[in-house]
Computed example of a mutant assay.
Amino acid sequence: MEGGGTLSDLYQKSKKLLLGTRDALERLERIDSSSYSSSSSSYYSASLSNPAVDSPDLALSIKKDIAQIQSLCVEMDRMWRSVGSRPQRDLWKRKVEQVAEEVDSLKESLDKHLLRNQKRVLEARERTELLQRAKGDSAHVLQDFDEEAQAMQSARNSSLMLDEAYATGVAVLSKYAEQRERLKRAQRKALDILNTVGLSNAVLKLIEKRHRVDKWVAYAGMFFTLFVVYVFWRWTH
């Protein structure tokens, strides 16, 4: 699957993604603060002249990175359980749990940002409607804010669909991980029995070959799941 490698490699990649995602989220918050520091009409004018203020695209990019980190956490959670040394296993467990907590915090901050932006756009729309009734000449401004509100709603809908797709992917990956652990335990028991009765090396090699095939089947299933999630995300945009 994407992000394959050793446990240490996956951990370093997840930490790098966490750092980049945190910076992107801070940039999104700065855009939010500067955009709404003036009146609603001034914010809309600024967004037309400065494409960087178009925060939905940045928010969706952050959402994608968060989903990738969560996928890495699923894979790391499977791998640390196979570490032979008990102290090392406990250390990796704490590290993976820390990454999972950090990415959950980032996801919560992003969701709050999207809700806050949607609320502000709706408030700006209501102010524009009042202004239109008072002056009778601001219909075009109301239309502009309608488009902005629709863009924010679209971003939130896309975010929810990504959440659902990610949850499905995580469930499938977890099933693959559980099946692989069961196969490994069954293989170890079988090897113990075969060694006891003195079965030939040729049969043992055949069993190991079957194990490798099962492992690649599991990896192929994980990759296919992530590919479906990616295609779904691309299709919705």
Results as ranks from 00 to 15, higher is better:
E148F: 10
Y166M: 02
A167K: 09
E129Y: 09
L110I: 03
L142D: 02
R156Y: 12
K112Y: 04
R125G: 06
Q118W: 04
S154I: 02
H113D: 05
A151N: 03
M161T: 12
E129G: 02
L131E: 05
Q143P: 04
R125W: 09
V141M: 11
Q150V: 09
R127N: 15
D111C: 12
N157K: 11
Q153V: 04
A167H: 15
R120K: 14
K112T: 13
R125V: 09
S158C: 09
M152C: 00
L122S: 04
A151I: 07
A151V: 10
D163C: 08
M152W: 05
V141H: 05
T128N: 03
E148S: 04
N117K: 03
A167Q: 14
R116M: 07
L115W: 08
E164S: 14
L142V: 13
S158W: 04
Y166P: 00
D144E: 07
Q150H: 07
T168H: 09
Q143W: 01
D146A: 03
E108V: 11
Q150P: 00
L122I: 13
M152Q: 12
E147H: 03
D111Y: 05
M152S: 15
R156T: 15
A124W: 06
E126M: 07
S154M: 06
F145M: 04
G136K: 11
T168R: 06
D163E: 13
E129V: 10
K135C: 13
K119I: 09
R116I: 01
R127C: 05
K135A: 10
R116P: 00
S154Y: 02
L122E: 09
G136V: 13
E126Q: 12
Q150I: 14
R125A: 04
H140L: 12
Q132F: 03
E164G: 08
N117T: 09
A134L: 11
E123V: 02
S109I: 01
K119R: 13
E129C: 08
A151P: 00
L142Q: 01
L110Y: 01
E123A: 08
L110Q: 01
L162I: 05
S159K: 05
Q150S: 13
A139R: 12
A165Y: 04
K112I: 04
A165C: 12
L162W: 14
K135W: 09
V141D: 00
S109A: 11
R116C: 04
K112W: 12
E147G: 11
S158Q: 08
E164L: 15
A155R: 01
T128S: 07
S159L: 13
S158T: 06
G136L: 02
L131Q: 02
M161N: 11
M152L: 11
S138D: 14
R133N: 09
D144C: 05
E129A: 08
K107I: 01
E148P: 02
M161S: 12
R120H: 06
L162N: 10
S154R: 15
E147W: 11
R156F: 10
L122Q: 01
E148M: 13
L114I: 14
R127L: 11
K112E: 14
G136M: 06
T168N: 07
S138I: 03
L114A: 00
E147D: 10
Q118M: 06
R156P: 01
N117M: 08
E164R: 14
A165P: 00
A165K: 08
D137T: 15
H140V: 02
Y166W: 05
V141P: 00
E147Y: 12
V141Q: 05
M152G: 03
A155K: 00
K119A: 15
G136T: 05
